[in-house]
Amino acid sequence: MALAVCLSLASMAGHTEDVRKQVVATTLITGTVQVTPEGKVHSYTLDQADKLAPAVRTLLDKNIPVWTFKRSITLPIDITERMTIRLLAAPVDDKHDRVSIIAASFDDDFHTEDARPTSLKRVQPKYPLMALDARVQGTVYTLVLVGRDGKTRKTETEQVNLRSAVPEHDQERMRNDLARAASAALQDWTWNVPTTGKYANAPGWYVRVPVRFNLQVRGAPPVKEPGLGEWEVYIPGPRLKRTSNPLPPELLVPEALAQGSDAIADGHVQAASSSVELTSPLDGG
């Protein structure tokens, strides 16, 4: 696995030392976790576990069992959550990488589709001109407030990762360019709102949506998205804190939940709140 990651990171080798120092490799792992009434892990599964590298399995098998959670469901039963885990590999030297768990998100596995907001009409973003001219690709992780009328009320960018080598002095401009384009598209999305469950009467709902910007070369094969356990190189962006939020207290999302803002697979929409909140470090310490 270390060799595969090193080869991925080598794709940035033609760029400045400052850029190479920022580059990391990442992959998403999915599965389920069963949480006891006491907030401990009863059991867990990893999707296509036999395809994961041994070092990845060792890392997850060491840490997931000792996670602890705060549950909002008081029933004395175990509950099952879908989990998405983001692993990050950063170079230690020319031959070795350090792999760590940097984010995790959880989504209730026991709710019906009409108990959570789901997308009704998706609008593809227009590629922003500045990023297009510079041939910059990236992924924007966005928090969206859905109103009771099924329209987007507000969007907040939580993180922008760049999948192209961009000089450090240009990175903020490129992230802002991609974020504005993602937000503009999400403003025109429409949503199916919850009609059953404990969230049905809420004044609004938060969901997280990753918006991916890919450049397709004319005549070339379609861009292949990374599969399970496949590593992708990028320059991680800072996790942004909301500077203003003129919303009712019942709509605010605890900052702790933002730790999983980039642990959502591309093309997926996920509720920003679930019945569990991770209360222990991701590394299990």
Rank of each mutant, 00 (worst) to 15 (best):
203 P>C: 12
203 P>H: 07
203 P>Y: 11
204 G>A: 10
204 G>M: 11
205 W>Q: 00
206 Y>N: 02
207 V>S: 00
207 V>Y: 01
207 V>N: 00
208 R>M: 12
208 R>L: 08
209 V>Q: 11
209 V>M: 11
209 V>K: 06
210 P>V: 04
210 P>L: 03
210 P>I: 03
211 V>I: 10
211 V>H: 02
211 V>T: 09
211 V>R: 01
212 R>S: 10
213 F>I: 04
213 F>W: 06
213 F>H: 05
214 N>E: 14
214 N>Y: 12
215 L>F: 05
215 L>V: 09
216 Q>I: 11
216 Q>L: 12
216 Q>A: 13
216 Q>W: 12
216 Q>F: 09
217 V>E: 14
217 V>W: 07
217 V>I: 15
218 R>F: 10
218 R>S: 13
219 G>E: 15
219 G>W: 15
220 A>F: 14
220 A>N: 12
221 P>K: 06
221 P>I: 04
222 P>S: 09
222 P>N: 10
222 P>Q: 13
223 V>F: 07
223 V>A: 09
223 V>N: 08
223 V>P: 05
223 V>S: 08
224 K>I: 01
224 K>C: 00
225 E>M: 13
225 E>H: 07
226 P>M: 10
226 P>K: 09
226 P>G: 10
227 G>I: 14
227 G>M: 14
227 G>K: 15
227 G>R: 14
228 L>S: 15
228 L>A: 15
228 L>T: 15
229 G>V: 06
229 G>W: 07
229 G>S: 08
229 G>C: 09
229 G>H: 06
229 G>Q: 08
230 E>T: 13
230 E>L: 08
230 E>V: 10
232 E>H: 10
233 V>K: 10
233 V>Y: 03
233 V>T: 14
234 Y>R: 09
234 Y>A: 06
234 Y>W: 08
234 Y>D: 05
235 I>P: 00
235 I>N: 02
236 P>C: 04
237 G>N: 03
237 G>A: 08
237 G>K: 01
237 G>R: 02
238 P>K: 07
238 P>G: 04
238 P>I: 02
238 P>R: 07
239 R>W: 06
239 R>I: 14
239 R>Q: 15
239 R>F: 11
240 L>T: 08
240 L>D: 07
241 K>I: 04
241 K>R: 10
241 K>T: 10
241 K>L: 08
242 R>W: 02
242 R>D: 08
242 R>I: 05
